[in-house]
Design a protein around this nucleic acid. Structure first.
Lengths: 144, 144
DNA sequence: TAATATAGTAAGCGAGGGGTATTATATTTG
DNA sequence: CAAATATAATACCCCTCGCTTACTATATTA
């Protein structure tokens, strides 16, 4: 018998992404852009290369997401005065109310998806997944 | 405070997919194709439209996956004699040893990713996620 | 000063997924 | 039975997300 944890987590996160995207369509933000906004809000004033690392994507991938978010006036690139190669990233004032709406959507979708579990079970599964993520975060599997 | 279950499940499943894809690259099978094979093995002799529904993808998306799997001689389309519009899908004999290798990879990746949890906790988180998936499977969120 | 490293970006590619329209075949309805 | 409708698979074209490679500008190191 095999575990199926991979399929389970994939299929559940897929449903969450789909529902988020559908609900956030009128705002014009995708789940991937949403990830950028949230992680940026938690790491203000960071460089693009840092944010890409946090998001576990390549810098060039982040460039395009930022282009779109900047075009929507949600994010600003600010030239660093010490190192003129780098941009510092920050959310615009305009981003705050938009993110509030997106958090509402995200919370609602999650509540629906987790509806089959009691609040205690919800907290438990999140705690367990946090440990899983913490353990693999940044670490490659042992290839020896 | 927000839940983060969406990000957690997404990021964990993303790591699993990446590691699976890297390990299965020499076999030439992606995680998406792997999903097709597994769900087909559990629903032998089904129609394409049924399998697409099980996988929660559109039939046209499945067509391309099946084209690749058929080219790799892992899957066969068989004309249904009762309804000449439909194909019945089946794994080839050739698929069995390949799937054995892929299960080995999948199991190994999962064991690594879940390594931070005790066996009891692993079983627990899988049980909880099974309930979550069972509850949302096929159901749209209540939009009333 | 020369070699090397780093931050951001352009160009172009591929996987995965989808919308719409088409063809062939069933099914339902007048 | 004939006509309208529904269904299964698919062709064509598009999108998003992510990548590799190569380039420019700037820092850092030898």
């Amino acid at each position: 018998m095999h575990f199926r944890f991979g399929f389970l987590s994939y299929e559940i996160s897929h449903v969450i992404r789909q529902r988020f995207n559908k609900n956030a369509e009128i705002i014009g933000i995708t789940h991937s852009q949403w990830r950028v906004l949230v992680h940026l809000s938690e790491n203000p004033n960071c460089r693009q290369v840092d944010l890409a690392d946090i998001l576990d994507i390549k810098p060039i991938t982040l460039v395009k997401q930022l282009d779109q978010l900047e075009a929507r006036n949600l994010v600003r690139r600010i030239k660093d005065s010490d190192d003129r190669r780098v941009y510092r990233l920050e959310l615009t004032a305009n981003a705050l109310p938009v993110m509030q709406k997106l958090w509402d959507i995200a919370d609602r979708v999650e509540a629906e998806v987790l509806g089959a579990l009691t609040p205690d079970e919800q907290a438990l599964v999140i705690r367990l997944l946090c440990r899983v993520k913490g353990a693999i975060c940044g670490k490659e599997p042992d290839m020896s």
